[in-house]
Design a protein around this nucleic acid. Sequence first.
DNA 1: TTTCTTACA
DNA 2: TGTAAGTA
Length: 99
Amino acid sequence: MSHPEPDRALYTISVAAQLAGVSPRTLRHYESHGLLAPARTRGGTRLYSDNDIARLRRVTELAEQGVNLVGIRRILDLQDENTRLREDGRGDRPDGAVR
DNA sequence: TTTCTTACA
DNA sequence: TGTAAGTA
């Protein structure tokens, strides 16, 4: 009962592109630079999850702010690592100590 | 028709 | 980033 969530929606590249306001070409470009890693069908078609869409939104937002792809990748990796650490369950450090 | 990769401008 | 070729 950890997650009552129904099936997570998946989108094709054209739908994901519309949701993010960019072209499929741009999505493939982002992926080639390690900014995105959508799942694939057996035939190779990309399947974007809600998480991918959320990540994609962070990408477009940073891009609008003038951050280049290398910078965006680093920021996203750091954000995700930070989120991962928080969700690690050991986030209760009484005195705020780290490690 | 859509998507995929590769590639050119 | 847009477009094209040749596939699947």
